[in-house]
Amino acid sequence: MKISDYSFDLPKEQIAQYPPEERGTANLMVIDRLDGSIEHKNMQNFTDYIDDNTVVVFNNSRVRKARLFATTDDSGGKVEFFMLSKTEKNQWEVMVSKAKKQVVGRSYTFEGGAKGRITRIISTNHRIVEFDTDINDDYLDQYAHIPLPPYIKRGDDNADSERYQTVFSKEIGSCAAPTASLHFTQDILDKIKEKGADIAFVTLHVGLGTFAPVRTEYLDDHDMHYEDFYISDESATIIENAKKAGKKILAVGTTSVRTLESSWVDGKLLRGTRSTNLFIKPGYEFKVVDRMFTNFHTPESTLLVLVSTFATKTLIDKAYKEAVDSDYMFFSYGDAMLIM
């Protein structure tokens, strides 16, 4: 199939620029894969679809405040650095703006007074920067900015520090939020447990590749990016026992889906830290996930392909058209979908 088959028209005013005023109040579209029905609900209705025959799986990765600004020591120009990963003590791999000017040896003064200089060029806009102090997550929490997606056309504000994180975020390392989980409040989590359902957590650190466009005409020619994930023995045991008992595995977000599907071997989940470049596309047979909770995704994206593979392209096309016609909000801060 072609990636152009996964396009749709979306008015720009339906691209959510801010989260709902109150977490847990977004629109919820519920679609049934068996009969093709579509219901319009609210996030407060989510637990109506949960019972003691369900395990809900969340991604507990936490977004790193990764956008850090600096001035060049020679000219005073402003440069933006995206902190990708710490390579060794006081050194980070970064993406950098105005890349042609950022050459080996150039030095900068960062927010908070830290000093740094480029020691190596990795690729067109990737560099290694060596700092005069330890740039850790405490420093980034104080001086860096939340990396909002490119389709949110504004700078981050104080509210994003909370709203672009899940209420259960724990393991720092994502470049973007596992956005389906942004809809869940502690109250909703408590109600899930009250219904007798189990909750399990996995960790997949969302990489910048999640925003990378598919540049090939055909899906089979696309090289999927790698992302690191972790599954604990506790979570694996909960999910394995549920599958043996015939319970439903409801994965919250495409990151949870890819984590589970990448790890299922001979009726068991692989434990520990691994990486995946699994591209779920037509022809894929799901081994673990029975139900999916997700946001509304960007046109011609691997995420939309994944959801369309799970629910059939015909049904997702119908659901997306109905969402547009019903003034749903789309993408990271937008509304949600539950696929039964």
Rank of each mutant, 00 (worst) to 15 (best):
I3A: 01
D5N: 15
Y6G: 08
F8T: 03
K12F: 06
K12V: 11
Q14Y: 02
Q17D: 04
Y18M: 05
Y18A: 07
T25M: 03
M29K: 04
G36W: 05
E39G: 12
N45C: 12
Y49R: 07
V57L: 05
R62L: 14
K65A: 12
L68N: 12
F69P: 08
A70I: 05
D74M: 10
V79L: 07
E80Y: 12
F82C: 06
F82M: 07
W92T: 08
S97T: 14
Q102G: 11
V103I: 15
T124R: 15
T124V: 09
I128V: 08
D137Y: 14
Y139Q: 10
H145Y: 10
Y151E: 06
A159D: 13
Y164M: 06
I172R: 14
A176S: 11
T185D: 05
I188M: 11
D190P: 13
K195P: 00
V202K: 08
T203P: 11
V206T: 04
V206P: 11
G207T: 02
P213A: 00
T216G: 08
T216I: 00
E227R: 10
I231V: 14
S232Q: 07
D233R: 15
A242V: 05
K247G: 01
R258L: 01
S263N: 09
S263V: 07
V265Q: 14
T273H: 15
R274F: 12
L278M: 07
F286E: 04
R291A: 15
H297Y: 02
P299F: 03
L304D: 07
D325T: 02
D325H: 03
F331H: 10
G334K: 04
